[in-house]
Amino acid sequence: MNIVKREMKANAKALIFWCIGVLVMVGAGMGKYAGMNGNGDTINELMSEMPASLQAIMGTASFDLSTAIGFYGLLYVYLIVMATIHAVMLGSNMIAKEERDKTAEFLLVKPISRSTVISMKMVSALVQLLVFNLVTLVSSIIIVERYAGVDETTGTIYLLMIGMFLLQVLFLIMGTAIAVFSNNATKASAVATAILLLLFILSILINLSGNPDLLKYVTPFKYFEAESIINHHQLEPFYVSLTGILIIALTTISYIYYQKKDLNL
């Protein structure tokens, strides 16, 4: 438990800033909606007049932007990007920093196995992801309900946040795996973030081409899209399972490889 505590302490400040960031994002984003509220139909008209490619890039797709939840769906993409960047950096950093700062020579000569080290760090990271997610959830519910009036949106927001949490965990473990396999601890975080951005860009390209085919399985950003969650009131079971399988697979190989890894000191 000592490692969990240490990790929480080390990351507390960063987590607070991320939470403030996401609060601002939800608050300011929905504030825009308030600004346009009342002439909702004009937004939809405005959006539909934009070229399809621009719509795809902005992720407006088929949201009804005159409703609060529709507008929130537009915002959701950006919340996902924030949450996953936070997760992937957390995941890669918690492993890479011990080699980068050479503290591995401190930590890994203690009477604990490397698996325990990863597990403890993972527990701490999951708590942090949960905090990030809950802050987003609570602020979203409060702010969206203010505009939506009725609480019919709350269920949808829960679903959206579950989707977000699955992606957070997926990217956390993806970051961990990248750091475990990386021989250059200083670059691990950058590589992990770069891969995340590539996957995000890929998801936009898929939106642009309108022809998703096999690529949609490649980028997790296509797994839980606001559009389908809002319209169908459910997470697609296929993608839930796929995410679960990916998480288990990446976790397993990370544990196995870290156990055998020569540390770069």
Binding site: R6, A10, T103, E105, F106, K110, P111, S113
Partner: peptide
Amino acid sequence: SEIKKEIGYLPSEVFYYDNMKVKDLLKY
């Protein structure tokens, strides 16, 4: 991990978690 219970190690270059106090590091 079993052996390491009874090993004390001083690396050639000491690097510790920078933002910690000496006392906290030793307690850790």
